[in-house]
Nucleic acid binder design. Structure first.
Lengths: 215, 215, 215, 215
DNA sequence: AATGAATGAGCTTTCATTCAT
DNA sequence: CATGAATGAAAGCTCATTCAT
């Protein structure tokens, strides 16, 4: 098996893409995108307000006409990331409300993976930089994050109850399946030569196998 | 299912433990431990040489009598982390050289998980701060990391060849199984009320299910 | 004797009162009052244009539609303060032109004290922030200030000449008596439980005793 | 009477003199002197850490090896100023403990004036910049200040009780006499051509006249 | 091995001010 | 008359690192 060289970078993908409709117009939006790129690459502490401003092409003081602090830029990114995640997971769960737990889990994992392939930089920032936020700035995102975990926990619970799944310790399954997608954001990119659906489908199958009773 | 509250911290565990026999004696070792704790908590960029020195109880200039730069402290931690990882994985692979691929995979995943439960801070630093290292400081660790992935890839390849495993896209299995353990370092701690072996066993079962042919 | 607790604040009084008829109408006047309050409390350098604007309820850029610079706001306040002072002292001196030097000095000191009790914030700004003005902005006020000192010097001179006063070094009396009122602006306020006339009368008596020949 | 031109500067004197034995050795002391000069001239808010550093001839970062913040430099100056004041006043009061109240008041006012002629910059900073200090940094000085006022209040009380003084409202005498010296710091300097004792003697006589019964 | 003093570069943030709208 | 966006300069302070002792 050919293993591609390990990338010491935090994210392999390059494009600082934000979900449709959430990028504010004008300078404010360009600040957000520059923050996304730099926070993803270097972390919150490793990226400076001047770097962001330089990337946007403005004076660093101008940034403060749009965001009250560096932390607020991160907070908005983290919030957007969590909202996209929650929206996609909720839609996946909702669209399969009446299906088998297996189908619903598949939908959830696919959605989870796809949000990481579609917005890898955002996902990395969302997952890895929460610790840098002041508690009051982090609070809204923390709640969204709990809702996401709840969606996964619920489908597992349902599958266990109706016998589709076999899980002696469901909480560990939540952490394991939840962790699957997270890693995707780090390595997914054009170099790996897999389409997004390929990864999503494969990872959904992994998840399904993880929870299914041994034969 | 009761989901414990999500922790915005990077690591839930507290003790800055290093593998036996690798901590240098005296001040040099205490610097390493302080660096471990602070880099794990705040990241390389977010932790300062003065914080490290304060935690050790020395003047920040004294640090330079032991390490030529802040980066070298991180480099040593990252190297130790990778060496422990490689040693444990190699031992697991070696001890099951003549067993089935399933048994060998089980041993590998168990070892992988256990190195994350035993040294969570070290694992977080090892996995998340490589990007902050100068290339020449990172190089030795990058090679160790490739060896670790090779071990996992090899057992998967063997299982596929002899029919134990069924994997249309083995590379994705490497990323998925490899990612399983990584996440453990973030949440494993006394609060979650699972013993290290419980997690290791369960995760090994997950991995095995992931690669096993559907019924 | 009960000494009230010393106030580390620059002015004890709170109301940003300006003399009748000098406050410009509309926003311009509200800027002046906000400047008065903030310059009195924090000094010219310690108060920012944005604080003033916030207190007025306008954008900081709007301020420049009314005053060409921060310094001009201070200059107008300082000018108003000096003009009020000159007007009151001149009126006091004029109204007692034909009285004894003692009566005239009494009138002057009373007026001097009262202008400090009536406009304590203005007095503090007028006395303490002149140094922050550009020379050309300060010039008109400097002249008014000299006229005020002249009035005091003249009455002392007259009293010495006609034997009412006994002062080996009249210049020191000018500084001492002039300084009496200045301090009043800092501590006069409702907390000290003295009416304005009480203070004025008492200070005038002090001044008179200072200049009168020992028995 | 020739009135010298009014000086818009905060202090006429130039030499940044500190009392004997209180200037710390080396850079720390030179920082203190530069702070004294600049805070006296421009106020705390109007003087910058970089100006201080430039005057000392050091990098602005070096300042933080000696003082933890700009406020701490001011706090030390203010404390020194208050301690010198308290020491001189206490010595004056103590040395005349068994004399008449008149003699004791004379000694106090003389001491008060002399501390302002001897350390005019320090006196201005001490008196005018307390408001810029954080409460916890100001607290020690506030207590010293109260002790000073107490010394003056006590002698006035004694003089009133034994009939030497006649003061219907002694509190106003405290403010007036206390204010006498304060102003001296602003204008005392070589230009005014008065020796320190001349001013002290004259002001002491003024104070004595202020409190003595009219003939 | 350890220190205090020092530094140049850089940090986040605020400053007074300008300008097109 | 008022604004939001923008700016260069500067604010207080911290950074990793050096060096003489």
């Amino acid at each position: 098996m050919d293993l591609p060289a390990w990338e010491p970078r935090r994210v392999v993908a390059m494009a600082a893409v934000l979900p449709d409709g959430v990028t504010p117009p004008g300078t404010r939006g360009r600040i957000l995108q520059a923050g996304l790129e730099l926070f993803a690459e270097s972390g919150f502490a490793g990226a400076s307000i001047r770097q962001i401003a330089r990337m946007v092409g403005i004076n660093s003081a101008t940034l403060y006409a749009h965001y009250p602090s560096k932390g607020h830029v991160l907070a908005e990114l983290v919030r957007i990331g969590h909202e996209e995640m929650r929206a996609r997971l909720a839609e996946a769960a909702d669209g399969t409300r009446n299906d088998s737990a297996a189908r619903q889990l598949t939908a959830l994992v696919r959605a989870h993976v796809l949000v990481h392939t579609d917005y890898p930089l955002l996902a990395v920032v969302t997952n890895s930089e929460l610790h840098a936020l002041d508690p009051e700035l982090a609070a809204p995102s923390l709640q969204l994050r709990d809702e996401c975990r709840r969606l996964l926990a619920d489908v597992l619970e349902r599958g266990i109850k109706n016998g589709e799944f076999s899980l002696p310790d469901p909480l560990l399954a939540v952490t394991a399946i939840g962790g699957l997608g997270v890693q995707v954001a780090h390595w997914f990119g054009p170099a790996l030569d897999r389409r997004r659906e390929q990864v999503a489908d494969q990872y959904a199958k992994f998840a399904l196998r993880m929870v299914s009773p041994d034969r």
